[in-house]
Design a protein around this nucleic acid. Structure first.
Lengths: 356, 356
DNA sequence: TTGAAAGCGCTAACAC
DNA sequence: GTGTTAGCGCTTTCAA
């Protein structure tokens, strides 16, 4: 058993042992500060002897930088957001910064989380979950803390946002289905409040309609952005059915598509794309696996991360905060085996749906 | 564009507006401190007017508590550790604490990460990745920061550890295979340095040998704890083969088992458990899905999390730090479809392998 | 280059 | 219950 709270080793202790002033210790630990080589050496040696580690929080009081970035994660059950976390973590860690992580389910009060984030004087905030109120993004800006929304936006807010061009992605899927000869469609939707889901639906539907599909040929069913939501959607799509199955099913994200596919194949013995075509969105690692081979739209994750970090201006301490920036980065259609690759499309080239 | 670094609103500003002293403001924001109801009301109102939010980092200087817990995550590609993160996040968030997250691949220098963790004066550290040197755990203890290893331990160290009883779990799988009539075995191993993998192998092998299996009937192949590692292992297991396939394959974790299964079925047209039995360890959500239905050992995640948090003694500020505690919580065998359920086992009851 | 001294924003005795 | 005061551990002028 070790007693807690022994008094800490401070820069004063180190200074005393090294025979220098406390400010010399401070200088020894900060890069490019004017200090003589041997002074620094003396300090470092004393520090090592005492197991001294500078208290970063104390220094943040004066420097006003914590090197902490808050990341609010909406859905860890979706592998895409796990990959996002992974990506940010690697990039940030190698830049000497840390992630303060928050998870927020659909029912979580994101504003409450933000209040906690703000108490910690983070250097930046990345939000990939349900929308925040404008008041809270305002509080963040007041404090000079940049905030960027990842793959979602707050309509009408001045906060910046980086996302996949979701509407254009939906459009790509529509064209793939059309090119393969589909005439009737089902959309498995995500959470209705998520702009991501809305945009992916809109791009898809608008393109279909442009190409002469009747709205009555497009049905929608809720999938709640989860594997089991997708599975349930598939069940009700097949079971309670009077008319023929749709030719093609578009899942607004891959994780739902996996659920749909598993149920279609294993519970109903349907073949894909033989009996129905299927497509997703995201390109999570699972989609590439042997049992799935899912045709989908790949989100440009690396670019999105780089762009998000750029908008945070982490290294330019005095940089003003960007507002209202909206970066929509195009995704890429990944052809695999769930849509027959009649790649030669005879789709009218006409104007595509606009990005927002 | 918003300029950065406007001077902050402090408790002095609030005090001035409310017509009270600065300490009154401090009191107003801390629970159970002696302050009159209407004084607090006045303060809160002024604070609201000024958009004041207390600076938690400043207060941590005196209180010596940050409400931050560091979590070092070894492998985000393994869904088990994603679930772990999720679990800790929920429990900690609802207790008003935050997670400072670090990811550490197999090649990451965990000691370097620890040095960064220690700069942040966290209230506790949870490590679920490669082993740390003893020197670093010592530094943490010196500072009065409790540290607990999650599902791994540092042999010979005095750091505490919470884990699944991995050896006993391996033993369970051995018995399941034996009960189903298997005589020859393959083990797909994880990272060789991970105690988790070692223990799971040991428990399995010892039990087999106790039951009269010759060591020559047990082959081992590296799976590197990943899906693709499992897939590769399956390929070399089948392809470069002169003798018959083993009766049963034991993957030291589920994510590898999925890779093995996909390859066996889709690349080689093998049936499971018809041609080979298969079992994993962890019980990740994917294992329950229709295409897999994997027989496995369920790690008692909730209990493990609760136990870890208990060892941290987050609420008892003065509690001494536990040392050398080792909690091995038994896992549960989950029978699904990859091992024929000849559940009536005629296995000699003799002494089981010991836990460590 | 170095040391002294004044903060950074807050908490916690201590008197009143 | 409230204000005064002395820190918490560090950075950063400012002189020397």
């Amino acid at each position: 058993m070790i007693a807690r709270r022994r008094s800490r080793v401070t820069s004063f202790d180190v200074a005393a042992l090294a025979g220098v002033s406390q400010s010399a210790v401070s200088r020894a630990f900060s890069a490019n500060s004017s200090i003589a080589g041997d002074t620094r050496a003396k300090v470092l040696e004393a520090a090592h002897k005492l197991n001294y580690i500078p208290n970063f929080l104390a220094s943040s009081l004066t420097t006003r930088r914590t090197n902490i970035i808050a990341l609010i994660i909406g859905d860890l059950d979706n592998p895409f957001y796990v990959r996002m976390l992974h990506g940010f973590s690697e990039r940030l860690q190698q830049a000497g910064r840390q992630i303060l992580a928050f998870t927020a389910g659909p029912e979580t009060d994101t504003d409450a989380i933000m209040m906690r984030v703000l108490q910690y004087q983070v250097d930046g905030i990345i939000v990939s979950s349900a929308q925040l109120s404008m008041r809270v993004t305002g509080l963040s800006h007041d404090r000079g803390i940049p905030i960027v929304f990842f793959n979602r936006y707050v309509p009408g807010s001045d906060a910046s946002c980086v996302r996949c061009d979701n509407a254009a992605g939906g459009c790509l899927i529509a064209e793939a289905f059309l090119g393969a000869g589909a005439k009737t469609f089902a959309i498995v939707t995500g959470e209705s409040r998520a702009t991501t889901s809305q945009d992916r639906i809109r791009g898809f539907v608008e393109r279909l309609i442009e190409c002469g599909i009747e709205p009555s040929q497009i049905e929608q069913i809720e999938g709640f952005s989860s594997y089991s939501g997708g599975a349930d959607a598939a069940i009700s799509l097949v079971r309670d059915r009077k008319t023929a199955l749709p030719d093609a099913i578009y899942c607004v994200n891959d994780i739902m598509a996996l659920g749909v596919m598993d149920v279609l194949k294993h519970s109903f013995g349907l073949s894909i794309p033989g009996d129905v075509m299927l497509a997703g969105f995201d390109d999570i690692p699972e989609s590439r696996r042997l049992p799935y081979q899912l045709t989908t739209v790949r989100q440009p994750l690396d670019k999105m991360i780089a762009e998000t970090l750029a908008l945070l201006h982490l290294d330019e301490t005095a940089h003003p905060i960007d507002q209202g920036v909206d970066r929509a980065i195009p995704g890429e259609l990944i052809w695999r085996n769930t849509v027959p690759s009649a790649r030669v499309s005879r789709i009218p080239p006409g104007a595509r749906p606009r990005s927002r």
